[in-house]
C-alpha cells in the first residue's frame, strides 16, 4: 500500500505539483496580515489622521496590499502554477471585477447627481 502510494506519487509529480508552501511562507504571511489588519483598524478606531479622505485612501491601499499578501503566501499564487493558467484566470477576473466596481460606481453616482433629491435627502441636508 505504502509502496504503491509512493510510486503513484512519483508519477504524479511531473504533471501535477501540489501547491505547498513552507512553514516560513505561512508565518511571514500571517505576520504581514496581522500588521496590515491592525493598522487600518487603528486608523479608523483611534482616528490619528484628521482627513477622512486620506484615512479612507490609506485603508483601501492597505486592504489591496493584504489581498496580494494572502494570494502569495496563503494561496501560493505565482506565474508558473498550472502552467500559468491560474494567473491568467486571476488576471481576467481582476479585470472584470474592476470593470464591474468602477463602472457601477461611475454610472450610479452620475445617475444620482442628475436625479432630484428625494424628500429624505432634503431633510438630511
Amino acid at each position: 500500500m505504502s509502496a504503491e502510494t509512493h510510486a503513484d506519487h512519483g508519477h504524479h509529480h511531473e504533471a501535477h505539483e501540489e501547491p505547498h508552501g513552507t512553514l516560513r511562507d505561512y508565518v511571514i504571511g500571517f505576520v504581514l496580515s496581522v500588521i496590515l489588519t491592525a493598522i487600518p483598524f487603528w486608523l479608523v478606531m483611534a482616528g490619528p489622521i484628521e482627513s477622512k479622505t486620506v484615512t479612507a485612501v490609506i485603508v483601501l491601499a492597505l486592504a489591496a496590499v493584504q489581498m496580494v499578501v494572502h494570494m502569495i503566501y496563503f494561496l501560493h499564487m505565482n506565474g508558473r502554477s498550472e502552467g500559468g493558467w491560474n494567473m491568467t484566470a486571476l488576471v481576467f477576473t481582476v479585470i472584470i471585477v474592476v470593470i464591474v466596481l468602477v463602472g457601477s460606481l461611475w454610472v450610479m453616482t452620475h445617475l444620482d447627481a442628475n436625479m432630484m433629491a428625494t424628500h429624505e435627502e432634503m431633510i438630511r441636508r
Binding site: 505547498h20 508552501g21 513552507t22 512553514l23 511562507d25 505561512y26 508565518v27 504571511g29 500571517f30 496580515s33 494572502h70 496563503f74
Partner: peptide, 10 residues
C-alpha cells in the same frame, strides 16, 4: 483559521 489550515497542509 487561515494559518492553522496552513499548518494542516504542512
Amino acid at each position: 483559521s487561515s494559518i492553522t489550515f496552513g499548518f494542516a497542509m504542512l
